[in-house]
Design a protein around this nucleic acid. Structure first.
Length: 110
DNA sequence: ATTCTGACGTGGG
DNA sequence: CCCCACGCCAGAA
């Protein structure tokens, strides 16, 4: 029920569904939106989501669990702080147990 | 209108 | 295993 026609709006709807202490990848969201391959656009959309506090952009990382977007957050490790605050262990900008903490948007379909 | 870049992903060598 | 190149689409110069 994607009421929003905008691509970024859809990204927001998915990102908001990311459970606390869980993370997902840009590609997963892109694939869920049916625009697999355009994972870059997801990141671009999240960039605009900075205005929306409801969108936990810090819970979205790349496919290897690397905080590729931490550089875009305030300070130097705000993204890492937010994640660790949720119990996510991060070493060298990389999420530990990423495969376990990974949340697949498709689970929402179930 | 054209060109480049970008919070990625996949594939080939 | 590591490195390189291409594709995706949207926005800015």
């Amino acid at each position: 029920m994607s009421k929003s026609s905008g691509f970024f709006e859809k990204v927001y709807e998915v990102a908001v569904k990311i459970p606390y202490g869980r993370v997902t990848s840009y590609g997963a969201i892109a694939k869920y939106l049916g625009t697999a391959g355009s994972a870059r656009m997801v990141g671009w959309a999240l960039n605009a989501s900075h205005n929306k506090p409801d969108v936990p952009a810090h819970r979205v990382v790349n496919r290897v669990g690397l905080l590729s977007g931490k550089h875009h957050f305030e300070g130097t490790n705000l993204m890492e702080q937010l994640l660790e605050n949720e119990g996510v262990k991060i070493i060298d900008n990389q999420i530990q147990n990423f495969n376990i903490l990974f949340w697949d948007p498709f689970l929402e379909l179930i």
